[in-house]
Design a protein around this nucleic acid. Structure first.
Lengths: 170, 170
DNA sequence: TGCAAATAATACGTATACGTAATATACTTA
DNA sequence: TAAGTATATTACGTATACGTATTATTTGCA
């Protein structure tokens, strides 16, 4: 009896939280991609956001601290930790971002294994545009959802992450 | 002022619902993959689940209706609609499932453009095992979340989907 | 000091998913 | 019935993400 209920629950995609989470992720990602293209910054890809946010944040901190001319770069593995991606994934993301003129790799003078990833002028230039697009796309995606429900969503997802992650991240 | 708040909110990955949704999706998928491997059914991949569920459901209905020997197959595009994937994505999924011995393509006698995808004996045989693994993996992933919060999650995600989808699905 | 263990990147193979374009076939309508 | 449209699938290129293995260094310890 129990089995029967369970089975039919799972067979119903629209009732399966895993299905819904996955579709929502893909759907928001597609919305971002379209929004970037529509805003004339089609060379920004959704996967770049984590990296850009990290580097922009570092930039802001440097400015706030008055460290003009500071290195400002980040190592690939650090970017991965910051964006929640494996180093082997970051390699490809940075490859594409370099190809698209947003960042540059430079040898780390203090660790010959490492490379510093730094924003190019273009990578700095697009900041305002990207932030505006991300903001409006997120507002559209999460529109009509009240603050309480959104907090609930975040709480549940954090719990799911702590239930499933093997300490990969952070 | 408003801009400042917004910006720093977005830069904080752990507070961004998009980041959380994406990480949760990937994390649950990885958990499924490991659970299948651990259960000795490593030839079952997470992406096969949607297809298997559809075909098993059809199987059950056929049985319930006493249609023994009925076609039982489904067309690729129908499987895509059922699983929420584009036809061009389904081609690859069915390729891999065929390679892994779970389904078989057969020409549709009534439409020469189409192919019927049918479960192999192996595809039927693994049903109980897969259902057990999926059940336990979902329980683990969503453990410690009360029913109300889970319903809330589903509701929010359905809203996100209706906000972002272009009528691609269903 | 000198060697084992840890760390930083990359290379490579696989899985997953799209979008666009091509091909074959079916349907619709003038 | 012929032409135009719609549908079913596949082919191909791209993006995203892992895991494992490899290479180059750096670190830590005996």
């Amino acid at each position: 009896m129990k089995y029967r209920t369970l089975k039919f629950d799972m067979l119903d995609t629209n009732n399966c939280p895993y299905y819904l989470v996955t579709r929502a992720s893909l759907s928001i990602t597609a919305a971002f991609r379209k929004a970037f293209a529509a805003a004339g910054i089609g060379h920004i890809k959704p996967a770049y956001l984590g990296v850009l946010m990290c580097l922009w944040k570092g930039d802001s901190l440097d400015e706030a601290l008055g460290k003009l001319g500071s290195p400002g770069g980040m190592k690939i593995a650090d970017l991965g930790r910051c964006a929640g991606l494996e180093p082997s994934t970051m390699t490809g993301v940075i490859d594409r971002m370099e190809r698209d003129g947003l960042v540059r790799r430079e040898d780390d003078p203090e660790d010959r294994r490492a490379q510093n990833v730094r924003l190019t002028d273009e990578g700095c230039r697009v900041r305002m545009d990207v932030v505006a697009v991300v903001d409006s796309a997120l507002r559209e995606a999460f529109g009509g959802i009240d603050a309480g429900a959104l907090e609930g969503l975040k709480g549940v997802l954090r719990k799911v992450l702590s239930n499933t992650e093997r300490g990969t991240i952070s």
